[in-house]
Lab assay of single mutants.
Amino acid sequence: TLFEALYDYEARTEDDLSFHKGEKFQILNSSEGDWWEVRSLTTGETGYIPSPYLAPV
């Protein structure tokens, strides 16, 4: 399942991933609570992002 960003987000740590509203992601790991490890389909980068900022496509 692909997810889309509902809002912009600016990374706060080196493990976070900055992204823009509308960017699409592949979920790599969603078992860590509200922070999911994802791969951006736009940039190819991986990192953690807050799951409340995402919605299924």
Rank of each mutant, 00 (worst) to 15 (best):
T1C: 13
T1V: 13
T1R: 10
L2E: 06
F3I: 03
F3P: 00
F3W: 15
F3L: 06
E4T: 08
E4F: 12
E4P: 00
A5C: 04
A5H: 00
A5F: 01
L6V: 08
L6C: 05
L6F: 04
Y7W: 12
D8T: 07
D8Y: 04
D8Q: 03
Y9F: 08
E10K: 10
E10I: 14
A11C: 06
A11I: 02
R12H: 12
R12A: 12
R12V: 14
T13W: 14
E14C: 10
E14W: 08
D15Q: 14
D15F: 15
D16P: 02
D16G: 15
D16Y: 12
D16E: 15
L17G: 01
L17Q: 03
L17T: 04
F19W: 05
F19P: 00
F19S: 02
F19N: 00
F19Q: 00
H20M: 12
H20T: 12
H20R: 15
H20E: 08
G22S: 04
G22N: 05
E23Y: 05
E23V: 02
Q26P: 00
Q26V: 15
I27C: 03
I27Y: 08
I27L: 13
I27R: 06
I27E: 00
L28Y: 03
L28A: 01
L28F: 03
N29R: 06
S30T: 12
S30H: 10
S31Q: 11
S31D: 13
E32S: 14
E32Q: 14
E32V: 11
G33L: 11
G33D: 13
D34S: 10
D34P: 08
W35A: 06
W35F: 10
W36C: 04
W36P: 00
E37H: 13
E37V: 10
E37F: 15
V38K: 00
V38Y: 02
V38E: 00
R39D: 01
R39P: 01
R39N: 04
S40M: 06
S40D: 04
S40W: 02
L41R: 01
L41A: 06
T42P: 01
T43Y: 01
T43V: 00
T43H: 03
T43D: 03
T43L: 01
T43C: 02
G44L: 08
G44Y: 06
G44C: 08
G44S: 05
E45K: 15
E45M: 15
E45D: 10
T46N: 05
T46R: 10
T46V: 14
G47D: 00
Y48I: 10
Y48Q: 07
Y48A: 04
Y48D: 01
Y48G: 02
I49K: 00
P50V: 03
P50T: 05
S51E: 04
S51A: 14
P52M: 15
P52T: 15
P52G: 15
Y53G: 05
L54F: 06
A55V: 14
A55T: 13
A55P: 04
P56Q: 09
P56S: 08
P56N: 06
P56R: 03
V57A: 09
